[in-house]
Write a protein that binds this DNA or RNA. Sequence first.
DNA 1: CGTCATTTTGAGGTATTTCAACGAAGGTGG
DNA 2: CCACCTTCGTTGAAATACCTCAAAATGACG
Lengths: 245, 245
Amino acid sequence: MAKRHAASLPSGDDSPSIRAIPLLAGNGVATSLLTARQRHDLEAISTRLRLPSGMRLYHEGADARWVFVTTHGAVKAYRDLPSGKRQVAAFLFAGDVFGLAESGRYVNSTQTITPVTLHRIPLDRLAEVLRHDAELQFKILCKVTHALRESQRLAMTLGRHDAAGRLAMFLLTVQKHLESETTADPDTIELPMSRTDIAGYLALSLETVSRASAELERRKIVTFEGKSLVRILNVKSLRALAAAL
Amino acid sequence: MAKRHAASLPSGDDSPSIRAIPLLAGNGVATSLLTARQRHDLEAISTRLRLPSGMRLYHEGADARWVFVTTHGAVKAYRDLPSGKRQVAAFLFAGDVFGLAESGRYVNSTQTITPVTLHRIPLDRLAEVLRHDAELQFKILCKVTHALRESQRLAMTLGRHDAAGRLAMFLLTVQKHLESETTADPDTIELPMSRTDIAGYLALSLETVSRASAELERRKIVTFEGKSLVRILNVKSLRALAAAL
DNA sequence: CGTCATTTTGAGGTATTTCAACGAAGGTGG
DNA sequence: CCACCTTCGTTGAAATACCTCAAAATGACG
């Protein structure tokens, strides 16, 4: 299933410039880019990679040797359950840091869902840098904190019992993520992930996601132009639906 | 509903000693307590509080001025939804750090569910200390990372569609949390929270939690001795149930 | 020992899951 | 360029599991 694109991580080229990692961009707290010095330090220990869609970055349980920072494209973090179902823990976009580990092992598997540009940073080297640069570490801390909020929001989403409501919350979440990297119309959302991935993220069956999408269209809240382009017709209704219950 | 105990946060006494905050205890990565120096620095800026059960610490949306570290007892972080339902985002036990904020405001409300001893640390003072002590900050970073894993685990739990399975995962989670503070029998779990709180955490109705509990008893996996004491009869079955699907 | 809160148990309604078949889109090869 | 195949998405119908409403039972506490 969908393993056609599966492949292992290449060693990757070694070009410089972690350009404009908006570590902490967006959300209120101490919005700040990296200083020239910090950028230089990170560039010195990181490898820049360009990967096609569908590439496996690492597998759940593997030795966690790197942390990744996305600069372009989208990645999914997921776990394969014994039943064969695939639960998506998070979608990562530009500016997101990932590579969550526990006891030295990655807790999720990750796979690109679009062509991606990212930076791969050796964990030990990063720890070294962070030990000497409290400011940089603070930015990482804020990043992780943000990821925690996201995860809690997902838990809130999954707590809902109506499929349409979950989908509404999901669409708004993606919109917020994308508005930072796209300068385009905020009412148009390009969904880089498949319906199956959305279903895995929302803990719904593929069919229910499809039906919920149809319901949102029927209620004139959004329209799907093609399978991956969503146009919001009524932001008010969408937000109301997302907030309800 | 259960607002009998609700009250506002007292100004609190000012005794010293953040004793043995196992910042990072347990989970593999760099298990380490605070150094004497770090403990001293934190004590200097924190206020130690002893609170009864049912005390509100702060309310969702309030100005986030403090971070809290629990040393004894249990706290719940929750959000009240428009429908009147109460969704529990996390249970906090000894050693846990909480006070998650976004844009300077707390994202959850918190309330003690047992008598609690904790330390209240002003956010600005803490930020100051962390700026000068990268090692201490690293310990905080690991704490937050751990909270992120917990939240992802909750999302995984909520992704399940069977009540008994969710409850099984919950019991194992609580067991793990408690084994660090209690030296007692690991097969006996003292649940400090009500069925209603469990229902809010697992996004189930109170009745379903009750029925799921009954099912676990019927299957000889656990027994409830009193309402809050759980004895695990068959760890293997419990883990199998938690891992399944 | 009585009162209040919490928990359990019962019965019906509703949403999602599952199973199954169909339709659309993209890539490949002849 | 078209046929074929694979993947993905949509639609339909039945089964299951949870939610809601309602009432009884248990437990905590003064």
